[in-house]
Amino acid sequence: MENRAIQQITPLQRALGTVFRALNFLLKIGLVVVFVFPFLWMISTSLKTYPESIAYPPSLFFAKPQWENFVMVWNSGDYLRYARNSITVTLTIIALQTLVSVPAAYAFARYKFRGGALLFGIVLVSFMVPTQLTFISVYLMFSKVSMLKTLWPQILPFGANAFGIFMLRQSFKQVPEELIESARLDNAGEINIMFRIMLPMAKSSLVAVTMFSFIGHWNDYFWPFVMTNTDFIRPLTVAIAQLRDSEHGNQWQLVMAGNVILVLPILIVYVFLHKKIISGFVYSGIK
């Protein structure tokens, strides 16, 4: 940066430089605090007593961790079921998406077939349609076939991941043609080529798509909120949102405890895998 070597650096400039660097460092630390502190505040509040949580001036820490808060939240509803619903829905979506999207992406990348462009157009259009536009019709559809009391309305609409198909197609397309010709010369059949050559090459984008989908559906609130009106099919997000509307609504230590249950698993994974997670998001964001 300092390429004006011709000029002599005066002591004043040197002092200013030090001050500038120190300020720069402090600002960066400040930024970290702004983005991490709310999570710490969430965790800290969740372990406080009610008086502690509303005390003035606020204390950063609790006198004694109130694990009972978690027990209370957990027992305020059928949380075991909510958690199970969240896990079932998310994992089923991912399994279904992988089964449906990988073959489709493969076909779009590798074969020229009549109508292929039109069908891919459907994928592109779907990719841009927000769920906020489709929920009414989908809701009515499931109500017509009386499936609103099952988990399917939360799963089936995401059976095909348009964004995932798009991403995977890109990475399948990047596999050099010669590699496939070489495999054909090695007497490999189509299925063999798909599993032994193509899928390993698309691994990183498959991982990115899966992670993307997992985080998205685990965190999703809008869709399950509009699709569920029975307690036993609700996922964690909807249940926790209801804490606010319940009798515990002003008991912030309980509301925060509920959110810790939702957020902590993801945060822990993030602490260990943040490099991979960020690069996955970047990979899919730039493409």
Binding site: P176, E178, L179, E181, S182, A183, R196, I197, M201, K203
Partner: peptide
Amino acid sequence: FQNYAIYPT
């Protein structure tokens, strides 16, 4: 092949 077409995985 010219660029060898070795299976990288």
